[in-house]
Structures are given as C-alpha cells and as structure tokens.
C-alpha cells in the first residue's frame, strides 16, 4: 500500500484511540509526518507500527506495549510529560510542544516516589 495512504489511515485510527485518553496529535506537523512515515516503514518491516523512538527486544509481551499509540501502557509516565515518548501525541491543552521535555523512566519514578 501507498505510504501516504497508510499514514492517513493511521491518523484516522489512532485519533479515535487517543481522543478519549485526553491526547491529540502534536501541532508540530513536521514531526507528526516524520513519525507516521517511520511507523509505516516499521509496519512493513516488522508487522506493526511500533514506536520509532523506543527499542524492541523481540519479546512479544514487551514489544506489543510499544505499538502506537502506546499511551495506555505508559499512561502515568506520559501524563507527567504531557506527551508520549516520541512526541507524536501531546495533551489536548498543549499549544507549544517544544516547551515539553522528555523525562526518563528513572526520573519519572524518582519524582513519583517523592510526590
């Protein structure tokens, strides 16, 4: 299938998943296009549109939690960043995604334990 067509299908399908979770596609169109294109490639190569910014181990239970949108499996962490790890999605109230920083798993867990 044509890459652009598949990217559009991802947009439609994933929008339905992220909306009830309080997320939207990033307003940074360039990043969104790039990431969706990578996901189409990943789907062709590995069978699923995996997160382009997280590593797969080949273990199904681990890897399936990285299929886009992976928000449900990393909810607290992403809510703390107000974006997902790769930045394809942001919280609905975010206008400027550049003001958000990535917080690593270790930093997130440390802040949660303090908090």
């Amino acid at each position: 299938m044509d890459t652009n067509k598949r990217m559009e299908q991802f947009r439609t399908m994933f929008q339905r998943v992220i909306d009830p979770l309080g997320y939207k596609f990033s307003p940074d169109e360039e990043i969104v296009d790039f990431l969706l294109e990578q996901e189409v490639m990943l789907e062709k190569e590995k069978g699923s549109p995996f997160c382009p910014c997280q590593g797969l181990t080949g273990e199904r239970e681990h890897d399936m939690k990285l299929v886009c949108p992976c928000i449900p499996f990393h909810r607290e962490h992403y809510d703390a960043m107000r974006r997902c790890w790769c930045g394809l999605y942001v919280h609905k109230d975010v206008d400027d995604p550049d003001e958000l920083v990535q917080i690593s798993k270790k930093e997130f867990e440390a802040s949660r334990n303090k908090g």
Binding site: C53, Q54, G55, Q102, S104, K105, K106, E107, E109
Partner: peptide, 22 residues
C-alpha cells in the same frame, strides 16, 4: 543497569547519562 528502559536517544556524557533530547 542505569535503571532505564530502551528509550532513545540514550546519551552518555562522561560518567553521566541523559535519556531523551535535552
């Protein structure tokens, strides 16, 4: 071993580690 997942980029500067683009 650094208590992290494979979230990229994983950047080592000397002895320190930064996970993410920062």
């Amino acid at each position: 071993s650094h208590g992290e997942k494979m979230s990229f980029p994983f950047v080592k500067i000397g002895e320190d580690v930064v996970v993410g683009y920062d």
